[in-house]
Design a protein around this nucleic acid. Structure first.
Length: 309
DNA sequence: AGCCAGGCACCAA
DNA sequence: TTGGTGCATGGC
């Protein structure tokens, strides 16, 4: 099968990745700067640095705004330039990471007519849902973040990654690959309790790792409905995954635009903030407010989160 | 000091 | 199917 992106790959050492007209790189960087404790990438001088989990080179890339209509990608950390397949996979990874292939015209039209969304969406226009392309990483991040504040969640993720991930050093900084399911599947709960995950979360993370390592859980299996049940139903059937985690993963990893973590306390606080009300809305109230978001709940949620940072 | 945190499993009824 | 409870501790 020929890859439609191959002809976009510049033959030189750097890459130019085309982006849609309504993509705003600065807003993406702004969102990604929300925590100073992020361990999976570095933001500096308006550029994103990350080691990408794409083979065979696993390159460290520097992504900057580039010319209008493109992102500029520079490779670092390897002696030789990355091979053609790595370069091609890098382009695909970035397109998925920043959701560059979704046409947001219907979302913007819907938001313009929605009193709750209009101002926020105008304010951050050009922002796209920043994804977590790796399923195991998305699941771990959601499970770790259950019922604890975000600052502590970042600390726990860092401990997990720095204990069980793979490090590359470049320019005085560490660039980590997220721990593999194969590695985590072999742990005992006590290994993660040592990092201050709760005993239940430790079991959840190891259980998810085992499912993925055994080939029983993957993005492909969740996205093709052949074996019965929606992605949400299948995810919720896994221990440690409730409605919030399922929809969070559908939103940031499976890229289902109708995914909607209505239980999310961050969403509740964002709506409270935007509407200027005294108390947080109930789930029932949010369901009423979001009646016109049909098909774009994930994007509405992501934009609302943005007002909190 | 006390409330809240990007919930979930488990148990009754 | 619904509602109540324990988890467990950091952050602000």
């Amino acid at each position: 099968m020929s890859n439609s992106h191959d002809n976009m790959v510049h033959p030189g050492p750097d890459l130019q990745v085309p982006v849609p007209e309504d993509f705003n790189f600065a807003e993406t960087v702004s969102y990604m700067s929300r925590s100073g404790n992020e361990c999976m990438y570095v933001i500096e001088d308006g550029k994103i640095y990350k080691r990408l989990p794409v083979g065979p080179d696993y390159p460290i890339v520097e992504i900057s705004g580039g010319r209008a209509g493109t992102l500029h990608v520079r490779f670092h950390g390897t002696a030789a330039p990355p091979c053609a397949s790595t370069r091609s996979a890098t382009v695909q990874y970035i397109r998925e990471w920043f959701d560059l292939d979704t046409d947001l015209t219907p979302f913007y039209a819907m938001a313009q007519a929605d009193g709750l969304l209009r101002h926020t969406v105008d304010r951050f226009r050009g922002l796209r849902i920043v994804g977590i392309p790796d399923l195991f990483e998305a699941l771990c991040w959601a499970m770790i973040g259950q019922q604890i504040n975000l600052a502590f969640a970042y600390t726990l993720k860092r401990r997990f990654v720095e204990r069980y991930g793979e490090r590359a050093l470049w320019n005085g900084r560490s660039y980590w690959l997220f721990p593999t399911p194969q590695r985590i599947a072999g742990l005992a709960p006590g290994d993660l309790i040592d990092l201050q995950l709760t005993s239940k979360k430790s079991e959840y993370v190891i259980g998810a790792a085992k499912l993925i390592a055994e080939g029983k859980l993957s993005k492909e299996l969740l996205l093709n409905g052949e074996h019965g049940g929606s992605a949400e139903q299948r995810l919720v059937g896994i221990r440690g995954i409730g409605p919030w985690t399922a929809n969070y993963v559908m939103m940031r990893c499976l890229r289902i635009p109708s995914a909607f973590p209505v239980q999310d306390v961050g969403l509740h606080n964002a709506i409270k903030h935007v509407t200027g009300t005294e108390r947080k809305p109930t789930v029932e109230e949010i369901k009423q407010m979001s009646a016109s978001w049909t098909g774009w709940e994930a994007y509405a949620t992501f934009y609302l989160w943005r007002v909190l940072y």
